[in-house]
Amino acid sequence: MKRTFLLFGLAMLTLTSFSRIDSDKKYIKKTTIEVQSNDGEKLIAKSDCVGCHKLDKKLIGPAYLDIAKKYPNTDKNINSLADKVIKGGSGVWGTMPMSAHSSLKKEDAKSMVKYILSLKK
């Protein structure tokens, strides 16, 4: 029995001597890169826009990507579309009218429109 423990201990000592502990090894902390979302995207997420619009699919209203394809990202379009978001409208994308968002500030609406138009690829 003593011999078995002695052989087992000798085997363990031999095996551990071949393993290499690298104390100088530097570990890299894994981090996730968080994409900074802009104010317009945050405002859209908090609003009722998501009930009628999706990023890439038509629901009740057009997809954001379709809007971005149709309208160039100009100051004139940003102001016009921001007004349309606030006042509501119909006829451009079909017969279903977009409800007015009269409580929305003009700057917030412009920020939302800027985000949508920035999606153009």
Rank of each mutant, 00 (worst) to 15 (best):
K2L: 05
T4M: 13
F5S: 03
L7K: 07
L7G: 04
F8T: 14
F8L: 15
G9W: 06
L10C: 15
M12R: 00
L13R: 00
L13I: 15
L15E: 01
L15Q: 02
T16V: 11
T16L: 05
S17R: 01
S17A: 14
S17C: 03
S17W: 09
F18W: 12
F18N: 02
S19F: 13
S19W: 12
R20Y: 07
R20D: 00
I21K: 01
I21Q: 07
I21D: 01
D22H: 11
S23Y: 13
Y27H: 02
I28Y: 05
K29G: 01
K29L: 06
K29M: 02
K30D: 10
T32F: 15
I33E: 10
I33S: 09
E34I: 14
E34T: 12
E34L: 14
E34S: 08
Q36H: 02
Q36L: 10
S37L: 08
N38D: 10
N38C: 04
N38P: 04
G40N: 04
G40M: 04
K42F: 02
K42S: 01
L43T: 06
I44W: 02
A45S: 15
K46Q: 10
S47H: 03
D48W: 06
D48C: 02
C49M: 11
C49A: 07
V50F: 10
G51L: 15
G51S: 13
C52H: 05
H53T: 09
H53Q: 09
H53I: 11
K54E: 15
L55R: 15
D56F: 05
D56A: 15
K58T: 05
K58N: 08
L59E: 14
I60V: 14
I60W: 02
I60Q: 04
G61C: 11
Y64A: 05
Y64D: 11
L65M: 07
A68W: 00
K69V: 02
K69R: 14
K70R: 15
K70W: 07
Y71Q: 05
Y71K: 10
P72Y: 12
P72K: 15
N73P: 03
N73H: 14
N77E: 12
N79M: 03
S80H: 03
S80E: 13
L81R: 03
A82K: 07
A82R: 06
D83Q: 13
K84N: 07
V85N: 00
K87W: 03
G88A: 10
G88F: 08
G88D: 08
G89S: 07
S90D: 00
S90E: 08
G91Y: 07
V92T: 13
W93F: 09
G94A: 11
T95W: 02
M96G: 00
P97R: 10
S99I: 04
S99H: 02
S99M: 12
A100C: 03
S102D: 13
L104M: 15
L104E: 11
E107M: 09
D108T: 04
D108I: 04
A109K: 03
A109H: 05
M112F: 09
V113K: 05
Y115M: 09
I116D: 02
I116G: 00
I116V: 15
L117W: 03
S118M: 04
K120Q: 14
K120C: 11
K120T: 12
K121N: 12
K121L: 05
K121P: 03
K121G: 09
K121I: 07
